[in-house]
Design a protein around this nucleic acid. Structure first.
Length: 638
RNA sequence: GGGCCCGUAGCCCAGCACGGAUCAGGGCGUCAGCCUCCGAAGCUGAAGCGCGAAAGCUCAGAGACCGUGGGUUCGAAUCCCACCGGGCCCGCCA
């Protein structure tokens, strides 16, 4: 699978250990064993461990401790030829522990890190389409959307780090009821289609128009007719109302994108739902499914006059085409999914989107028939970041894809995550009295916290903290740093928690910059860079000086920094970027521990000082890389 | 009725995929310390029960609530089953 040597040496060490273990077991007559290694519970045991003797002992009816001695002594012999294995020792509980040859390991790790870019573990990866963000263009992003964005964007970054060719997709539902609601507000309820000065357009539409239109529906149900009129016009795609809606959607989308970019996320392509609908892909798929007999026309019963497919869970039926001939919601997801993994011809052309995106060209689908140089869709693997409430529908999509081509569901993955809700206190601050400890956000009710609002609050706090520490710096500098601190705090907070767990958002907790937070990482990095800025020496290490880096804190730091690729591999395999968050935090802790007790610039011996400088330099580079993988901005000083 | 997810310290979380080693790790909060010394957004230490103003003394010392109860296993926070509590999903809405 890996076509290139791993750059960070812990994986090398692990590979050596696995090989030695396998050979030792074979030499002792134990064959066909699954070789497994793990990190010992405690550093004093060693750097990698295996419980294989326990398994052998059980089968052979021997004492695990004795087997461990046998295996260890054989492994010790074989390990002499290995570069990174320093010592092998048995443990009477039935473990074999492997210790790193520290000086070689440190020397090679530092050299590898300082001599080149990290990442790109594979030379040529597969194409992976990752869809995320997907916010209806009628309101501003709230912190729940931010969880989606942070998860998706970090996945994009991890996949790219691992060498995959990623397409970051953002799906824009420009033809749904929520958009129609805004248009109803402008056209029939007298809302201005200009935001008041100083108010972001998406925030205006969400906070001041959408919530009020929804209320108006409750008071005057006849307004719903206006909504369905607008909806039909939008679906038709031509005419004055449709053109007007198109303009409004673009305006809101631009405002939303500004927030996405503020959070550090960028996209390769915008997929417009209206174009997906008009592309004819659904009709094509529907015809095939009919031929396969997977969709059936109901001639009687409660679903009379509709087309249905079997429900994957109950075996009952799920309507896909209504009796009026229109397709239901999943029928939009199915062609989109099929397009992503290339089960269907690509109907789209691609043009650059007229708003320029920092850090890369943003494309937009077109249906004008022109084919440009770039291509999207047809990926080997597609990942959709969508919250857990859509799991059922996503399973239906998977089932249909499988029917369309065997094995497709393995190439179409749903990365689900739990929603973000608001704590009782935070809801109260927003003027909502709730029962229970938390409340689900609701765009309709106006119960939500906008991303921009949150970032601004974080930034205000970060500004005063930064100013306090940097009295002489110009305002623009402080502003820039405060923005980075704010983004780091929000992204890290949303990323570090397991996606399966609901986040109960609370202003008080979220405004914390101490402990296991994004700012802690920024601070640790700045501390490391400070050492390198202030020094007379130059990072340099050779065999002799590497052998002098023997304090446990130096070893711990070197070991930790060389495990980034291990975390990145896990993050990729389980679509779980929080691995990177855990890694980065541990690295920062290891660095701060080192920092407190090991002098660098104050070290009098220049050789040792320079070797430590090299270690600090390497560790800081890895820390910066891990922060980049999470989309956290990196600053040399904060 | 069927399905998915969560339940770990006062609070918030890690560990669960691949079951293992003596104390199940962090963070927040609380208390006490550390800036003439590479940045204090950091680091170090303390917190079983009872008595005592306190130094301290007595008790606890196999088994200490990983939601509960079973099971599998030499071994379970981790796997299986049941139950309890919480959240979500099962529309000819999107």
């Amino acid at each position: 699978m890996r076509t290139q040597e791993p750059r960070l040496k812990f994986l090398d060490f692990q590979a050596e250990v696995e090989e030695v273990l396998a050979d030792s077991c074979r030499a002792l007559g134990f064959k066909d064993l699954q070789i497994e290694v793990s990190l010992p519970p405690n550093d004093t045991y060693g750097d990698l461990a295996s419980a294989i003797p326990i398994r052998i002992a059980k089968e052979a009816g021997k004492n695990p401790g004795d087997v461990a001695i046998e295996v260890a002594s054989k492994a010790m012999e074989l390990a002499k030829k290995k570069r990174y294995i320093g010592a092998v020792s048995p443990h009477r509980g039935g473990y074999v522990n492997f210790q790193i040859n520290h000086s070689r390991f440190i020397l090679d790790s530092i050299s590898a890190i300082s001599s080149g870019d990290l990442g790109a573990v594979r030379e040529k990866g597969e194409t992976v389409a990752i869809e995320h963000t997907n916010v209806n263009p009628n309101k501003a992003l709230h912190i729940g959307h931010a969880r989606n964005l942070v998860l998706g964007d970090s996945l994009v970054r991890v996949m790219r780090y691992m060498g995959q060719q990623v397409q970051a997709l953002n799906y824009v539902d420009d033809s749904g009821a929520q958009v129609a609601d805004i248009i109803v507000g402008f056209k029939f309820l007298g809302f201005s289609d200009e935001a008041p000065p100083g108010v972001k357009y998406d925030i205006y539409c969400g906070d001041s128009v959408y919530t009020k239109v929804t209320k108006a529906y409750e008071q005057d149900p006849s307004l719903k007719e206006k909504q369905s009129f607008v909806l039909k016009e939008i679906e038709k795609g031509t005419g004055e109302t449709a053109d007007y809606a198109r303009g409004i959607v673009r305006k809101i989308l631009s405002a939303q994108l500004a927030t996405c970019w503020r959070l550090g996320a960028t996209y390769d392509l915008l997929n417009w739902e209206s174009q997906l609908v008009h592309s004819g892909m659904w009709e094509q798929i529907f015809e095939s499914l009919k031929k396969m007999g997977y969709v059936k026309f109901q001639t009687e019963g409660e679903n009379k006059g509709t087309w249905v497919i079997p429900d994957p869970e109950t075996g009952e039926e799920k309507v896909v085409v209504r009796s009026d001939g229109t397709a239901v919601y999943v029928a939009k997801d199915i062609p989109y999914a099929a397009w992503k993994i290339g089960l269907i011809g690509d109907p789209f052309g691609y043009e650059t989107y007229p708003v320029s995106q920092p850090g890369g060209v943003l494309y937009s689908t077109t249906l004008d028939g022109k084919k440009g140089k770039v291509h999207f869709g047809g990926a080997r693997l597609a990942i959709s970041v969508i919250d857990t409430r859509q799991s059922y529908l996503q399973r239906i999509v998977s089932k249909v894809l499988d029917r369309f081509r065997e094995g497709s569901s393995k190439r179409y993955l749903h990365r689900s995550y739990e929603v973000v809700s608001l704590s009782k206190n935070t809801a109260a601050q927003l003027g909502f009295a709730i029962e229970g400890d938390f409340a689900h956000m609701s765009g309709r009710k106006g119960l939500y916290v906008n991303v921009d609002t949150m970032l601004d609050r974080l930034k205000d706090k970060a500004k005063s903290e930064t100013r306090r520490r940097n009295l002489a710096e110009p305002e623009a500098w402080v502003d820039d740093v405060a923005e980075a601190v704010a983004v780091s705090a929000l992204r890290y907070e949303l990323l570090k928690q397991d996606p399966d767990k609901m986040i109960v958002f609370d202003f008080y907790d979220a405004l914390r910059f101490q402990g296991d937070t994004g700012p802690y990482l920024l601070y640790s990095y700045a501390r490391a860079r400070r050492i390198l800025d202030k020094t007379e020496g130059k990072p340099a290490i050779d065999e002799k000086s590497a052998a002098r880096l023997t304090s446990p804190k130096e070893l711990k730091l070197a070991k930790q920094m060389s495990m980034l690729d291990l975390s990145a591999e896990t993050a990729e395999e389980f679509l779980s970027p929080k691995e990177i968050a855990r890694f980065a935090h541990e690295l920062a802790v290891a660095f701060n521990d080192f920092y407190e007790s090991v002098p660098v610039n104050k070290e009098e011996d220049p050789q040792l000082r320079d070797a430590r400088l090299a270690l600090v330099d390497a560790a800081s580079r890895v820390l910066a890389e891990s922060m980049r993988l999470m989309g956290i901005p990196v600053k040399d000083r904060i």
